[in-house]
Computed example of a mutant assay.
Amino acid sequence: MKLRSLLQVVALWACFIPALQAAEGPNLASVNAAVAWVGDEDLVFGKNQDRSVPVASITKLMTALVVLDSGVPLDEWLTFRERHTPAAANAYTRIRVDSRMRRSDVIRIALMSSENFAAYTLARSQPGGFDAFIEKMNTKAQELGMTQTRFVDPTGLSADNRSSAADLVRLVNAAYKHPEIREYTTTGYYRGHFRNPRYSLSFGNTNALVHRESWGVGLSKTGYLSEAGRCLVMISTMNGRKVITVLLDSLGTRSPMGDAGRIKTWLKTGASGKVAKAARRYEQERNAAYASADNGMAAVH
């Protein structure tokens, strides 16, 4: 083969290598994942994307969506009443019972700082009350075509709040239409002001990537429960396009951010990247646990 022809073949294969790698997808530490372009429900990449799993505080995106869709006034002052039912998990808060805050600010701290008492108060303050609000969350999920999704509380403290990565792409697309959600979820720091008595508290965003301009984060929500692992849903700019990233059930706090970086690199170069051995072991254990739970459910039915 002539040298010129050989070089042409090599160049041709060089063009195909990223495509071949892209077909394999990125290596991710997250056990369940989905990647899509904003405004599109078709996935660019999925990993166990239809598996229904606990989603922890990702729930709060639906809570905010239901509140905003209802049209209630955002400048209304809400009262943080003592819980009428026990929380499903640790619900520590710095907010004082019977203090008050504007609904817009309650939504903000529920989203950017994942404040559980704030999410609970949003649900309890809605017309119709707490139980009706949970029904509306599930109705909204059905309207969005989220077939693998069920909610039992507005905070995500219950492991019975379940969804799939593919379903959450639909939720993120719907939430992104609200400028308030885009603003509140990407607020880096916020000083919240309360009444009765008057006091203030500082809140920080639970996603470190919102502080990095290079990511162009347009929507963000994190979540964690022992049953759910570390979770992240995010809209960010990757290679000039707005991308939805859904990452569910990761081992550690850094794993979802590492996965987001691997997805960004994969979309640009086709390189799959590498995942730490500890994350691989975690993934194997979690997949085995999911399989066991599915088998148990099948046996019951």
Rank of each mutant, 00 (worst) to 15 (best):
Met238Leu: 13
Ala228Cys: 10
Arg241His: 12
Ser214Tyr: 14
Leu232Ala: 02
Thr206His: 09
Ser220Met: 05
Val210Ala: 06
Leu247Gln: 04
Arg230Glu: 15
Val217Ser: 07
Leu247Trp: 02
Thr222Arg: 07
Ile235Tyr: 15
Ser255His: 01
Arg262Thr: 11
Val246Ala: 02
Phe203Val: 01
Thr206Tyr: 07
Lys221Arg: 10
Val233Met: 02
Gly240Thr: 03
Gly258Tyr: 12
Asn207Thr: 00
Leu248Tyr: 05
Leu248Val: 03
Met257Ile: 15
Cys231Val: 08
Gly216Cys: 09
Val210Asn: 10
Gly229Val: 02
Ser202Cys: 01
Gly261Met: 04
Gly258Phe: 05
Asp259His: 08
Ile244Glu: 00
Leu251Trp: 08
Gly204Pro: 03
Ala208Ser: 08
Leu219Thr: 08
Phe203His: 11
Gly229Leu: 12
Val217Lys: 13
Phe203Ala: 05
Ala228Arg: 10
Thr206Gln: 10
Glu227Lys: 06
Glu213Leu: 07
Met234Asp: 04
Ser214Val: 13
Lys242Asp: 11
Gly261Asn: 10
Ala208Met: 15
Leu247Ser: 00
Ala260Ser: 07
Thr206Ile: 15
Thr206Lys: 10
Thr237Glu: 15
Pro256Val: 05
Leu209Ser: 01
Cys231Gln: 06
Val243Pro: 00
Ser214Thr: 09
Ile244Asp: 06
Leu209Pro: 03
Lys221His: 07
Thr206Val: 11
Leu232Phe: 05
Glu213Cys: 04
Asp259Glu: 14
Arg230His: 11
Val233Gly: 05
Leu232Gly: 06
Phe203Tyr: 10
Ile244Asn: 14
Ser255Pro: 06
Arg262Glu: 08
Thr206Trp: 02
Ser236Pro: 00
Ala208Lys: 14
Gly252His: 14
Ala208Arg: 09
Gly229Phe: 12
Ser250Arg: 03
Thr222Ile: 13
Ile244Gly: 05
